[in-house]
Computed example of a mutant assay.
Amino acid sequence: MGATAAAGHGPVYEALAALPLVDHHCHGVVTAGLGRERFESLITEGAAWPGISPFDSPVGVAVRRHCAPLLDLPRHAPAEEYLARRAELGPHEVNRRFLTAAGTAVFCVDTGYAPDHVTTPRELAEAAGGAAYEVVRLESVAEEIAARGVEPGEYAETFRTAAQAAVRQPGVVAVKSVAAYRAGFGLAPERPSDAQVTEAAARWLAGGDRLADPVLVRHLLWTAVELGLPLQLHTGFGDSDIRMHRVDPARLTDWLHLTAGTVPVLLLHCWPYQRQAAYLAAVFEQVYLDVGLTLHYVGPARAPEILAEALEITPFRKLLYSSDAYGVAEFHHLGALAFRQGLAGLLQERVDADELGLPDALRIAAWAGAGNARRLYRLATTDPVPEDGRD
């Protein structure tokens, strides 16, 4: 774990630097070489606008500061030198260096978003020397059955059957919805009727677009509950498809009341709503959260503040680690580094101020970095890559 060793000092830093992480939500990395334009597009949720490079942003600075040394470059290497060295090493070696440096033992991989050719869960795990499991994106399941052709009156049962088949595949540990992108969380909380689903399916199937009908999104969420696996929900920060005011997880409160006692609900990313997510985790037994994606975009310098807000009232068994890395292996490394340094700094400061006992701090660090995810997803202590897992 030496490449991700924390910058600070003390037993909590040492413990987190050595901890094999469980990344409970991430994606594959690109296997082809990347030119400047494509690389820049992958390190931003926005775009590389004329005259404005993502390298000149907090995440771009973090890449040049914390990733350049792993490419044998000095810290803060210019973007041109960074990209040239990356091309010289080639994608296989670049991916290997960053994935192993992350110190991640287990990857729970969302395979439903892949506009680029990216590693399969098995390939990701093999490059990192770890294990991989799959997270099934339910919108992708719905869109696949629509593409094959289905009658509106048969849509609900066909989707349920397809989703059940998907989650029974070896290596699947959770499902995910991107309802935040498609309809936001201002949805009626109740389960839609069969007639409502059929009517909505007729509208959607006639248009042939991605699943975004609010009724069908509600139906998808209730079907997810029936599947019985942990449900991951994107909340907060994302690309320009997001309408930020509609993705505050607090808007799920009524639905959470109705689904109490069913499946764990994992609130992903959360920024700038990490405090609302913390409230939900504090008052609903089934709610958990992470601040993945956020951490590598704010960088290690701001990670402690984000984590401090997320942990203001969150029960310590409710915080998980994720990177939400996609495309560039740098984000697996940066996510892990920011989490380790940020949480270690936060906990060590409280230990030094005698606000937290060292044994408690070490337990919290181990829970957040790995233990909570292992318990929630029922992961083995030792995680072989599933031999016949869905790649």
Rank of each mutant, 00 (worst) to 15 (best):
R203F: 09
C108R: 01
V118L: 10
D194V: 08
V136W: 02
R148F: 10
T104W: 00
E139H: 01
E151R: 11
E139L: 08
R96W: 05
A188N: 06
E151M: 09
F185G: 12
V109P: 11
L99F: 01
E126Q: 11
A212V: 07
E154T: 15
V141A: 12
E144W: 07
Y113T: 14
L205V: 09
W204K: 02
F185W: 01
F107N: 10
S140V: 15
V118G: 12
R96Q: 14
P121G: 14
E199N: 07
D116I: 10
G129N: 03
V94F: 13
W204N: 08
T100P: 09
E123V: 12
A142I: 06
L124F: 09
A195E: 15
P170H: 10
V175C: 15
E134R: 13
A201L: 05
T111S: 00
T120M: 15
N95E: 07
R97P: 08
D110W: 00
V106L: 05
A131N: 00
E139A: 01
G208D: 05
D194M: 03
P192R: 01
A195G: 14
A179V: 13
D209C: 03
V178P: 01
A163E: 06
F185E: 02
A163K: 13
V172K: 03
T158A: 15
Y113D: 10
V118K: 02
T120L: 04
V173T: 08
V175Q: 11
L138P: 00
G186H: 03
E143I: 15
P192G: 09
E93K: 01
R168Y: 08
A201D: 00
G207F: 07
E144T: 07
E151Y: 02
W204P: 01
